[in-house]
């Protein structure tokens, strides 16, 4: 088996400096073919810059990267034949209709006039845009634009697709439609590298996740591994009789050896759970002492907590919004 088929992306020590700002500061990435890889990080972390370098749009200042074994700098034209890029800001022509956009991209990719027409019609149908096909894009909603953008990236059926924040700014319904589309792509065998600032999105879609902050990869692994790296799960209990709370706490201290936390609502207890096996003992003791449970669940750490732990700062929605506006201004 040729090695260049195993790894869709291999990047070593990618660096990109803009003036004083080391936007990407030594990023390593390895993406196995046929998987979804999530690059998670706040705005300004270097996600888009990394993608731009992998997609041959920006020249790295240091480091190297290969796409299916082809060097992004020396074999840029080959790499471009293997990738589809959906950038953060819709890369379609505002003044033209959806059909015209797709036909032009198809023609550029070497399809004949009739092939281009058929391909465009098929993609518009697939992305539910047939009705809006001849309308100018100015009248398109954000979600429709993103779908058209993604459709345009799929014309050549590239084995690797870059999605830069595919759902930023979309409403929840459109977002879940986009997720379905991405899942379908992977089922059809494509490799997807997506960036996101939504922890839930990475959790939902990605097989592996790289957490990136200030231009560096601060953690890498599956969502489960990342969560596990942050700490243990916690056991959440609700007692049938709120009066048993003190007794329950005592039992937990004796069996699990930890201090449980009582939630403001009476009868709700949260206890760190390092060893799931010992929970059996706890439940047996509860039965023996006559403490009845009305509810029990195990809470795993969220990616939010992972993020906070790894970067020392959470994803602050206000600053994200402010930075997005700044970015848009720069873009305009």
């Amino acid at each position: 088996m040729a090695t260049n088929s195993d790894w869709a992306v291999e990047a070593h020590g990618l660096v990109k400096v803009f003036g004083e700002n080391r936007a990407v500061d030594g990023v390593d990435l390895s993406v196995r073919a046929g998987t979804v890889y999530g690059v998670l990080g706040p705005n300004g972390a270097g996600k888009s810059t990394t993608i731009s370098m992998l997609a041959t749009l920006l020249r790295p200042d240091a480091g190297s990267a290969t796409i299916f074994g082809h060097d992004v700098q020396r074999e840029a034209q080959i790499v471009r034949q293997l990738i589809g890029v959906t950038a953060q800001f819709a890369s379609v022509d505002e003044k033209l209709s959806a059909t015209e956009n797709l036909i032009i991209f198809s023609r550029l990719l070497g399809l004949s006039r009739s092939q281009a027409r058929r391909k465009s019609a098929a993609l518009l149908d697939e992305f539910g845009l047939t009705e809006a096909a001849t309308r100018p894009l100015a009248k398109f909603s954000g979600g429709m634009r993103r779908r058209l953008d993604l459709a345009a990236s799929l014309i050549a059926q590239p084995p690797l697709i870059f999605l830069d924040e595919p759902t930023t700014g979309l409403d929840p319904r459109t977002r879940s439609q986009m997720w379905d589309t991405i899942r379908r792509l992977v089922n059809e065998g494509s490799t997807v590298l997506l960036t996101t600032q939504y922890l839930e999105e990475a959790d939902q879609l990605a097989d592996r996740i790289a957490v990136i902050d200030t231009g560096r990869v601060v953690a890498e692994g599956t969502a489960e591994e990342l969560k596990a790296s942050v700490g243990e799960s916690s056991l959440q209990l609700r007692l049938a009789d709120g009066g048993d709370v003190d007794e329950a706490r005592r039992v937990i201290r004796e069996t699990l050896g930890v201090d449980a936390v009582i939630s403001p609502e009476a009868g709700r207890i949260t206890a760190p759970m390092a060893d799931p096996d010992r929970v059996t003992d706890l439940f047996i003791r509860f039965r023996e002492t006559g403490i009845r449970l009305s509810e029990m669940s195990v809470q795993k750490p969220t990616l939010d907590e992972v993020f906070l732990t790894l970067t020392g700062h959470g994803v602050d929605s206000d600053s994200v919004a402010a930075e997005t506006i700044q970015k848009e201004e720069v873009h305009a």
Partner: peptide, 14 residues
């Protein structure tokens, strides 16, 4: 060129 569509042109094998 300030519009996003030029980013796509750059990423195409043209």
């Amino acid at each position: 060129m300030d519009k996003g569509v030029f980013d796509r042109f750059k990423s195409l094998p043209i």
